[in-house]
């Protein structure tokens, strides 16, 4: 039996492990706040995957070629798969998936704000792949280095798949931006609506980000919101220009001195309005999730009844076998 350590000794050892770059694994000691913060982040991430199925999923039935239809079903399915995987990662910290989902359905859990915007034309699907997945990859690439083992490992595989989505979205929009007038209008219209929300995906400016300091100390988060946002802008702006698209920001300019693309001011009032539940699609997204949940109740009851009956039958046959 190892000698009892004080909380402070454990914390020191824990932080030393993180400093050495070791991964924290499910059975390991961790501060309650580390566990809480991780459950919050991972479940928000999982919810984002689940709610994120809706805006793109709505276009599966309208996809205009066999190939695009296949790619879109596969993409939305990837998101569901990531959701399941991330709920498992949250469970490894002692959370219950049902509790997490209940919190989502009750409107108490957050998910990525971006999915509270509507998908209004077919090109939105490609633009989401390019911008939204592109922005998500920035964040998730960082998280592959996160200190919690299950989360970081999940991110490695999720990133590989997201990169594929990003490339597919970019391919589609690049094609449309050079396509018929109708397609060019669709692509530009999609960019006009998704540009600013995608920049907001990195979260509020560092000065207003409440959780960042602790998250960075414990290696859950490795870069600040603003730093990631700037990386994204510097990479995506030349790509969009190369495709022949016009970024809807009159103040956008390349700063020779810093080597950065500088955007005009982001409308943070809109960000806070949407995050508080007043975005264009907040209510609709939750309504869709609740309907699926409510309509599925009898199915889940049947599953449970069948599973318990099967196990009873199994036990009976064991008993009779012993006679």
């Amino acid at each position: 039996m190892p000698p009892e350590l004080t909380h402070d000794e454990r914390l020191t050892a824990f932080e030393a492990r993180i400093a050495r770059g070791e991964k924290i694994e499910p059975g390991d000691w961790m501060p309650d706040d580390y566990r809480r913060q991780l459950i919050r982040m991972i479940s928000q991430h999982a919810h984002s995957e689940i709610v994120g199925m809706l805006p793109e999923g709505a276009w599966i039935e309208h996809a205009p070629s066999l190939r695009r239809k296949l790619i879109l079903i596969a993409k939305v399915q990837d998101e569901a798969g990531h959701g399941q995987y991330l709920y498992h990662a949250a469970e490894s910290l002692g959370a219950e998936r049902q509790d997490l989902i209940d919190a989502l359905l009750a409107g108490k859990a957050k998910y990525s704000n971006i999915f509270n915007y509507p998908t209004l034309n077919w090109a939105d699907v490609g633009m989401i792949g390019w911008l939204v997945d592109g922005a998500a990859i920035k964040n998730q690439t960082m998280l592959t280095g996160a200190s919690y083992g299950p989360y970081s490992r999940a991110m490695v595989r999720i990133c590989a798949e997201e990169t594929f989505h990003y490339k597919q979205g970019k391919e589609m929009i690049t094609l449309y931006a050079q396509g018929t007038p109708h397609q060019r209008r669709m692509a530009q219209d999609a960019l006009d609506r998704w540009w600013w929300p995608s920049l907001m995906m990195f979260g509020p400016p560092d000065a207003d980000s409440t959780n960042s300091t602790t998250l960075m100390r414990w290696g859950i988060k490795l870069k600040s919101n603003d730093a990631l946002r700037q990386e994204f802008i510097d990479e995506i702006v030349p790509e969009l220009h190369a495709a022949g698209l016009c970024i809807p920001d009159p103040d956008l300019r390349y700063d020779e001195n810093s080597g950065h693309w500088l955007t005009g001011p982001i409308d943070w009032d809109e960000f806070w309005r949407v995050i508080k539940g007043n975005g264009p699609m907040n209510r609709e997204r939750l309504r869709a999730r609740r309907t699926a949940h409510d309509d599925g109740l009898w199915v889940r009851e049947a599953m449970a009844a069948y599973a318990s009956r099967s196990s009873v039958i199994g036990k009976r046959s064991t008993v009779s076998g012993q006679r």
Binding site: G134, I137, K138, T141, C159, A160, T163, F164, Y166, K167, K170, E171, T174, E231, D234, E235, I236, V237, P238, E239, H241, A242, G244, L245, C246, I247, R253, Y254, E256, G259
Partner: peptide, 29 residues
């Protein structure tokens, strides 16, 4: 060519998104 008048300032080259085939295969564009 990019549509902006300031397009000359666009630095060429690809972004740094993680590229599954980075070691060997050229990037899409």
């Amino acid at each position: 060519a990019p549509p902006h008048s300031g397009a000359q300032a666009v630095p060429q080259g690809e972004g740094n998104f993680p590229e599954p085939n980075a070691p060997t295969s050229p990037l899409p564009a």
